[in-house]
Design a protein around this nucleic acid. Structure first.
Lengths: 216, 216
DNA sequence: GTTGTATTCAGGTAAAACCCTCTTGAAATA
DNA sequence: TATTTCAAGAGGGTTTTACCTGAATACAAC
């Protein structure tokens, strides 16, 4: 029985992967790759220029120029009929959640078996979504918060202070930049040191790194 | 004219990539994928078990269990007749050099065009090596050392000091642990601050992180 | 109104961190 | 032997951090 041909677009900056993925997907019965893009901006152009939109977009998260998050948000907004699957290396809980919140119909890890890709594509077309066991488990974990992660929140100013304190600036300089008195800055410092149980600025840098508040 | 079929093995922990790469390579005239492995250990087993060795190994660098460097060294030692190409995301100069020193016949970035892969495989079989323009440029850069990177080395004590300074310890405590006078520790600090052009301990932490002297 | 509570900032102090210069002693080298 | 080099460390200084307590303001809740 002949079924309708589903079209796929691949958005990934690794040409080697997207190129070979095309071969793989074209070998799947009922699927065909329509085009590639190496980042979100390129996808936008091609969608606008092409006239015809794909059924599914495979969307890499780590890309230059316009990354997966932005692209997801844009797709969701402008092409809600396109189903897109996030494609990523890591199974970072926060990242998965963010992509799903941005409308992704599924989350594929790059270490899945190629056969799984066909299953994923088919399920997305049939049921509207696909979730691997691994991702499902991660999601479950996220709604069953472990007793130790207390999910510390920071106010906007605290966050700014932390980021600046993780540079070589003195507190005086930070105060100038944030347009606050050095005494206020000292207040932030004290409050954070107490709350996070740290002894000095090095502790703050370490905390910020461990919690993805800053990057190196 | 019929040419001999060249065999390829793929070592990469991303099944999706290796699986689709297989399709791509099998579509190349004159090449065929013999088997996959998701890390170096698996490659060892399959080579020993298989009896027949591939002509070329495509070797990913970032893998769990046994990474590209170890695998390269082992291949070079035990199967010198197998030509292997390093496959990686980043074009880190040090990494490229290390792989080439370990006997890689070429270095492929994952963002190359699929057609380039065929060229690379062919050239490796014909000429014994393949180097893309990008990698060639990087290599050139490495033998023409830029005036600024002076390849900073550290003495054992300096390294220990740096690692301890990247914790919440005071210099006094570091002096105790290292069994040296606080004044000596202050000397290390001063010397490092000058050499690395940093202003305070936060700068040291950042430097240590960027240069893989410590990890978080 | 009053009672919270959050934000900003002040004064004061001790301890670290930071910086420069100098001595000593041992080892390497001329 | 004389000279240089270098790690360890000291003296003595300034600046920054770190810690405490308390006050003025503002805004919302009771």
């Amino acid at each position: 029985m002949k079924q309708r041909l589903h079209t796929v677009a691949i958005v990934d900056d690794h040409l080697l992967l997207s190129g070979s993925l095309e071969k793989l997907i074209n070998s799947f019965d009922g699927f065909k790759v329509l085009f590639h893009a190496s980042n979100g901006k390129e996808l936008q152009h091609k969608l606008k220029a092409n006239g015809v939109a794909p059924d599914i977009v495979l969307l890499d998260i780590n890309m230059p120029v316009m990354d997966g998050f932005e692209t997801a948000a844009w797709l969701n907004e402008n092409y809600p009929q396109i189903k897109f699957l996030a494609l990523s290396m890591e199974d970072d809980e926060k990242v998965i959640l963010k992509m799903l919140q941005n409308g992704a119909k599924g989350y594929l890890l790059k270490d899945i078996h190629p056969d799984k890709l066909k299953i994923a594509l088919s399920e997305v077309m049939d049921r509207g979504y696909y979730h691997s066991e691994k991702v499902a488990a991660t999601l479950l974990h996220s709604i069953q918060p472990s007793n130790k992660e207390v999910e510390v929140k920071f106010k906007e100013n605290e966050l700014t202070f932390m980021q600046l304190a993780c540079s070589e600036m003195t507190y005086k300089e930070i105060a100038d930049v944030m347009n606050l008195s050095p005494k206020t800055i000292d207040g932030y410092r004290q409050e954070l040191f107490n709350r996070l149980h740290i002894k000095n600025r090095v502790g703050l840098v370490i905390y910020a790194l461990k919690n993805n508040i800053i990057e190196i």
